[in-house]
Amino acid sequence: MEQWWYNHKTGEVEEGPQSLAVDRDGPFETRAEAERAPQIIAERARKWAAEESGA
């Protein structure tokens, strides 16, 4: 099964874990998801913050 990663240091999408774990986010099921990683991560962070604040 293919897995895609987003390297937040370089802004590049990687097929399989190619860079250091500290520099990448994932895995994602598709390249398109990995390309949207910054937006997906921001959405998740907002959701978690809202849950923690009880909103």
Rank of each mutant, 00 (worst) to 15 (best):
M1G: 08
M1V: 08
M1Y: 05
M1R: 07
E2K: 06
Q3T: 10
Q3D: 07
W4Y: 14
W5E: 00
W5H: 06
Y6G: 02
N7I: 06
H8S: 01
H8N: 05
K9M: 13
T10S: 08
T10R: 05
E12D: 04
E12H: 03
E14P: 01
P17H: 11
Q18H: 08
Q18M: 15
S19P: 03
S19Y: 11
S19A: 15
L20P: 09
L20S: 15
A21E: 13
V22S: 13
D23H: 10
G26P: 01
G26Q: 02
F28M: 06
E29Y: 08
T30H: 04
T30D: 01
T30V: 05
T30W: 03
R31F: 12
A32Y: 12
A34V: 00
A34M: 00
R36H: 11
A37D: 07
P38T: 05
P38S: 03
P38M: 03
Q39R: 07
I40L: 14
I40H: 01
I41E: 04
I41A: 02
E43W: 04
E43M: 07
E43N: 08
A45M: 05
R46I: 07
R46A: 13
R46C: 06
K47G: 07
K47P: 03
W48A: 15
W48I: 15
A49W: 11
A49E: 15
A50K: 12
A50L: 11
E51M: 14
E51H: 12
E51P: 09
E51C: 10
E52S: 10
E52V: 09
E52P: 06
